[in-house]
Each structure stands twice: as structure tokens, then as C-alpha cells.
């Protein structure tokens, strides 16, 4: 017996949410959203919402986990109980532990860990709402939180998935497309350096399709990368603008005082 799959793409080539095949979901990024963490970032990609916080480099506890030649990067990817339709147990699942490792390995190449021996950098990622592509949004958010914490980086890491639904190769799959589609290829990279730090595949693709998916995901990453840089600059540009505006008012006030 074969399950009847719902149509994911209409006759005009539009997806369920009205996107074209090579279009990203609406992206919203904020940096420095948490006062108590050393660095933080918030990423919304469509209905996927992810919060990342970074602490460190700091003393390693327990002590024996420290390495004599470099810092340890510790990642925790966690989904909030309310992030999915059916309440998820807050205990870390097998999937979350695996994703924590995968995200850590996607971020490590961007850092100069050997500069800070016997210390730890902690990254906490909280998925507030899940609608597909959470590991990619997590990497995007975590790399911004690292930059916000003032931790030196080779480049920002941007991540995005590509895949195949109803026989069409598409960018940035949402949850339904991921579940009912044929394949999903998450990819993370340092776009400025042209280095890929994460590449996974779930499902079936021919070698040429895989190559096309990778090219598609790289294009997606580049768009996300531009948005990341914009978000990092935003706060400082805003303060500069505020000061300049206040300065514009100054002569009048100064004149009043004199």
C-alpha cells in the first residue's frame, strides 16, 4: 500500500506558502537580545524561531574536560517543549544530542580555538518554534552570537537547506516539505572563504541532483550571510544615527543656554 502524498507544488510552480523553488523564507535576524549572556542572537526563518546564547571563553568545569592545547567548544541544541504541535519532553533526545554535535562541528572551523587553551566556550541554542530547517537556523544564530560575544572568528557561518519536493529541487524546506518531500540537504558554510562546514543528506537524489542541491543551498547561504552581516552592523549604525540626529538639535539648545 502506498501513502498518498499531498501536492507540495501547484501547477504554476508555487509552493505551499507561495514561494518559488529557489526562494528563501522571510528572514528576520536580531543580535544582542539577551543581557545576561556574553553574546546572543535571534533568528526567524519563516515560522522557525531560534534563540542562541554564548558564554566564554571561560574556566572549564569540570576541570578534566579542559584541553591543554585549545579551547573546548560546547554546544547544546535544545527544542522547547512548546516548539512543536505535540508537547516535546524537555529532556535531551537522541536527535538533539546528535544535532548538538553536528552544529558544534559546523562552528568549530570558524573559531581560533588554539588561542585559548584550557578554556571553554559554551553555546546554548533554544528552538522556540520548529517548522523545518532548525539546525540551519541554529547555526546561523549561533555564529552571530559568537561574533556578538567578541570571540574572534575566521568568518561567519551561514546555513541553509535545499531539497527535492514533487520532483522539483527547492531551497529552504519548511516542515511539511521536509516530511513529504523526497530529499533534504542541509548545508553550512563560511561564504567569505568558500568553505563548507556542514553537509548532510536525507532521502534520495541522483548525483547530479545532489550537485544542483548543493549549488542551490550555497546561493541560499550567501543571501543569509548578507543578512547576518547587516544584523551585526545594525546596532552600531543605529547608535551612530541617533547621535548624529541629537547633534543636529544641539546648536538650538546650546544657543538657548548661552
Amino acid at each position: 500500500m502506498e501513502l498518498k502524498k499531498p501536492p507540495l507544488i501547484d501547477d504554476e510552480g508555487r509552493r505551499l506558502d507561495g514561494r518559488g523553488p529557489a526562494e528563501l523564507r522571510p528572514l528576520h535576524i536580531e543580535v544582542d537580545v539577551l543581557a545576561n549572556a556574553d553574546g546572543s542572537a535571534y533568528v526567524e526563518q519563516g515560522n522557525t524561531k531560534v534563540l542562541a546564547a554564548v558564554y566564554g571563553p571561560k574556566e572549564v568545569h569540570p576541570r578534566h574536560l579542559g584541553l591543554p592545547d585549545r579551547a573546548v567548544l560546547r554546544c547544546r541544541y535544545h527544542m522547547a517543549p512548546f516548539s512543536v504541535k505535540q508537547r516535546k519532553s524537555p529532556a535531551p533526545s537522541r536527535r538533539e544530542i546528535e544535532l548538538s554535535k553536528v552544529i558544534r562541528e559546523a562552528l568549530e572551523p570558524a573559531l581560533f580555538l588554539q588561542h585559548y587553551p584550557r578554556t571553554a566556550i559554551d553555546v546554548f541554542i533554544e528552538v522556540l518554534q520548529a517548522d523545518g530547517g532548525t539546525r540551519c537556523a541554529s547555526i546561523t544564530a549561533a555564529s552571530l552570537a559568537l561574533a556578538d560575544a567578541g570571540i574572534p572568528m575566521r568568518d561567519l557561518v551561514a546555513a541553509c537547506a535545499a531539497g527535492k519536493i514533487n520532483g522539483v529541487l527547492v531551497l529552504d524546506l519548511c516542515d511539511i516539505e521536509d516530511k513529504h518531500g523526497e530529499a533534504d540537504v542541509p548545508l553550512a558554510m563560511m561564504p567569505g572563504l568558500g568553505r563548507i562546514t556542514l553537509l548532510q543528506m536525507d532521502g534520495m537524489l541522483t548525483p547530479t541532483e545532489l550537485k544542483e542541491c548543493i549549488m542551490l543551498a550555497i546561493e541560499g547561504c550567501k543571501q543569509i550571510y548578507a543578512a547576518q552581516k547587516e544584523a551585526l552592523r545594525e546596532r552600531f549604525v543605529r547608535i551612530r544615527k541617533e547621535v548624529e540626529e541629537a547633534e543636529g538639535l544641539e546648536p538650538a539648545e546650546g544657543g538657548g543656554e548661552a
Binding site: 561574533a147 568568518d155 551585526l232
Partner: peptide, 8 residues
């Protein structure tokens, strides 16, 4: 100029 990590 304002720069961010990875800027050439």
C-alpha cells in the same frame, strides 16, 4: 568603517 568577522 564598521567591519564584521570575515570581511575582506
Amino acid at each position: 568603517d564598521l567591519v564584521v568577522p570575515g570581511d575582506l
